[in-house]
Design a protein around this nucleic acid. Structure first.
Lengths: 142, 142
DNA sequence: CAGAGTTTTATAATAATTATCGTTCGATAA
DNA sequence: TTATCGAACGATAATTATTATAAAACTCTG
């Protein structure tokens, strides 16, 4: 998706960012790419329009966009592997801010309903669900 | 939690792994540590019992345990940042194997029910839910 | 269009994880 | 037991993802 410079300027203005060309192109690349892409993929897309762009600029702007609410982070996990020795069916409550994980028990999810919506062939026989929110501490520190 | 060597041997045998001392201590450390710990934390715990252990051994065994189904991976996305430009409420269907993400629509989740179960103070006003399973391609390639 | 403050770029640094390889260990059988 | 062989371990190098730094370029406001 392309925006006029004025449109992007207004958008950037709302969240207190300067409307630079690089920033606009990064933003457009994310919106245009339906799906959920990694920084490297976005960098590759942006490079077609601005060959001189730096990968750091992509990271920088993605972080700013997420901070200012223009984009949301998918799977806002910690940057490190986590393992769970509890193999009984249970789900996780994850803090989007500090990445802490707590177990939750119970049947909250209507899997029959989900089954009708998911793509053909997707295997949900052992579903794991993660619910993201803000833990008490992070909510207080806002 | 401690296991007898025989108990661990049986467990390891079931998934085709040799029952080494290091392996047993890593496994016990994960199970004993309720919660969802990082490789570094597990390494620190194991080091108290086997000071000479290598971090690589911890990583190696965690990966094997996950592969063989003895442990499960929490938030199986940790390797790279993903962003989403779709700010409308929606949820994600994630492949545990290849990490691909697809959007799903609909109200599958009984948030009133969840609200009763979650810890005091946890903010679920803008919940994001991710459902993990196996996509068609990864299921076929099993 | 000048000055102040941001942003970009190139690059170095860091963190997390994986690969490599020589050495040692564990399981099986003589 | 011990000999044997493949698996596992430990030290360390390499790789990958991300963040930090600092000088140069750009954006915004007046």
């Amino acid at each position: 998706m392309r925006l006029t410079h004025q449109q992007f300027r207004d958008l950037a203005w709302k969240c207190g960012l300067a409307a630079t060309h690089q920033r606009q192109v990064v933003y457009e690349a994310v919106i245009a790419s339906h799906g959920h892409h990694s920084p490297e993929q976005i960098y590759a897309a942006v490079k077609k329009r601005i060959p001189s762009i730096s990968l750091a600029t992509v990271y920088n702007n993605l972080r700013l966009f997420v901070e200012r609410g223009l984009l949301r982070e998918v799977s806002p996990h910690s940057s490190t592997l986590r393992v769970d020795g509890n193999l009984k069916p249970h789900h996780h409550l994850v803090c989007s801010r500090c990445k802490s994980v707590q177990d939750i028990e119970g049947d909250f999810f209507d899997f029959k309903h989900i089954s009708r919506q998911i793509p053909e062939g997707f295997d949900l026989s052992q579903p794991v669900v993660e619910v993201f929110g803000l833990c008490r501490r992070c909510r207080a520190n806002r």
